[in-house]
Amino acid sequence: MADTLVRTERPAASAEARRGAVAAPHRKGRFVPLLYVAPALVFYALFVIAPWLHSFWISFWNWNGIGAATWAGLSNYTAVFEEPALRAALTHAFGFIVFYTVVPVILGLILAAVTSAVPWRAMPVIRTIIFLPQILPLVAVGVVWKWIYGEDGPLNQMLRAVGLGSLARAWLGDFTYAFPAVGLIGTWVSTGLCFLLLLAGIGKIEPSLYEAARLDGCGRLREFWHITVPGLRKEIGVACNVTVISALAGFDVVYVMTGGGPGYSTMVPGVQVYQLVFTAGRVGTACALATVLSLITCAAMYGLNRLSRER
């Protein structure tokens, strides 16, 4: 998000940089940029790359985290795809993309288009309210929603108050509704972020484009479809990136609300990895699942970035 904003706000900066690059081809200077990134790179290598490689390495072992390990070959990886519980976790992660990404981006687009078209005075308040879920710790969000969905919680009380008591149930204990119930929290959290990102993006779309469209007799809807949406291509890309990662790597909300249950109906890879390590003592399998998840995430990011790149 940050680099999109910087790039668009200061077109002069990149021009300067280009001139600088042409003017300084000293041989010594070739190492200077590396010096600048070195601190960050060292930390990244130590705390991200090395642990990732370590966990990749562990994924080839049968190890309970404490005792002696035995070589497992690829058996941990076959387990990830063959054990129903582990496979279900991966499938659910993709299901959550609908709730964390697809719905929030669509909602965010509509909200952003509507609020930018109508200059309400209450705008700052609306923005704050829509963005609020994003700044709450996810564990707190989970605890609050668990109460809302509870058997005697506000949701069921509301249903009973309007005469729909027959629909009331323990939402998180129901095999059919637990998954969407947990997923909707993702929508609630992500919509604010998408909305704000897209609203900022709309602000930088050339106003003359809208003027031209209006002169050509475009309605609001065609304006939205032909100018706003294409103009937000990059922002939509960023919103998708951020939310897809949170969908695939989710842990807090599910752990707090259902722990993966009932049955395995809301199990996600994050919770499964945690259980494999701390309850089952299958650190190797957990690392294999984590590796598969990180590869899937990387692949998804690559695909998304290709899609959102400007043609």
């Binding site: 290598a45 390495w57 562990i58 190890w63 309970n64 005792g67």
Partner: peptide, 10 residues
């Protein structure tokens, strides 16, 4: 990283 981990964990 590999040197640091090139043995069986545990």
């Amino acid at each position: 990283a590999l040197c640091g981990t090139a043995c069986a964990p545990g």
